[in-house]
């Protein structure tokens, strides 16, 4: 099941997938000068779908994310969101960074409402959206704190909230929980699944943890050698509600985890 033409949407959420993909890569290639990072990569990601990009460091998974975010432009092929070519970064594609990248000089509320400030929304609306969004990620009551007063997990919640506040089509997450302790990480993974159910947001999640990729994803793209356009797509078949820690022990979870592990071993 080489994923270059994969259109199957492995979601268990009824009605989550639509016919037309939100994100489309059409034979995308990317090179830094002479150094080719990827070539001939094609896939489609449906509305409300979570796709985990799994792979070792340097395999090119973050490059895919940067191409979707518009931080990089394809050197070949086309990258599309809702059928339109991606021409640069924009609030329809929010990014949650590994180190949060919060603005330390702004309060939590100001961080969360930053996209509204840039869009010229009035102060009262910004405050209201900040409070609503903070509540959504369990940050209610911390709106006036500064990022340096928060724990690592709470900082990532702010990172999530400021993306959500812009009501994006797509959320791009670049190993956002890899520096957190296990308990916090698992809480946040479940939070991401709940947020998807609530907002219908499409999510691309980069990780190097098999467990995280399987627990979060509707599909897992196992990235091996993007220079030949190859990756394998695994459909995740877990019971709803997905945001249940029981799923971490479900036979389907363990089987898929093993299958991915064996594939990774086999290819090296």
């Amino acid at each position: 099941m080489i994923g270059t033409t994969s259109k199957s949407v492995g979601t268990t959420e009824p009605g989550a997938a639509t016919e037309r993909p939100v994100l489309t890569f059409d034979r995308v290639g990317f090179a830094y000068g002479d150094r080719t990072v990827m070539r001939d990569v094609s896939f489609g990601i449906g509305s409300g779908e979570i796709v985990s990009l799994l792979g070792t460091s340097g395999c090119g998974k973050t490059t895919i994310l940067n191409l979707i975010a518009g931080f990089l432009r394809p050197t070949e092929g086309r990258a599309l969101v809702d059928g339109a070519e991606i021409s640069g970064p924009g609030p329809d594609r929010g990014v949650v960074f590994q180190a949060a990248a919060l603005f330390d000089w702004m309060t939590v509320a100001e961080n969360i409402a930053f996209s509204l400030r840039c869009a010229g929304r009035p102060r009262r609306e910004r405050r209201q959206v900040a409070e609503e969004t903070a509540a959504l990620v369990d940050l209610a009551g911390r709106e006036d704190a500064y990022p340096y007063e928060l724990s690592g997990g709470m900082r990532q919640r702010v990172g999530l909230a400021r993306v959500l506040a812009a009501r994006p089509r797509v959320m791009l997450m670049d190993e956002p929980f890899s520096a957190l302790d296990v308990q916090t990480r698992e809480d946040l993974q479940e939070q991401v699944l709940r947020l998807r159910d609530r907002t219908g947001c499409t999510i691309v999640f980069v990780t190097h943890s098999i467990d995280e990729a399987v627990f979060l994803g509707d599909r897992v793209f196992l990235i091996d050698n993007l220079r030949q356009g190859q990756f394998e797509a695994f459909a995740v078949e877990l019971n709803a509600p997905r945001a249940s820690s029981e799923n971490r022990l479900a036979p389907a979870f363990l089987r898929l985890r093993e299958a991915i592990y064996r594939t990774m071993r086999h290819s090296h």
Binding site: A69, G70, F71, G88, P89, G90, P91, R93, G94, V95, F97, A101, L102, F103, F114, S115, C118, A119, R162, V163, A166
Partner: peptide
Amino acid sequence: RAAQSMGA
């Protein structure tokens, strides 16, 4: 990049 992707 965070600022740009929030529409700044």
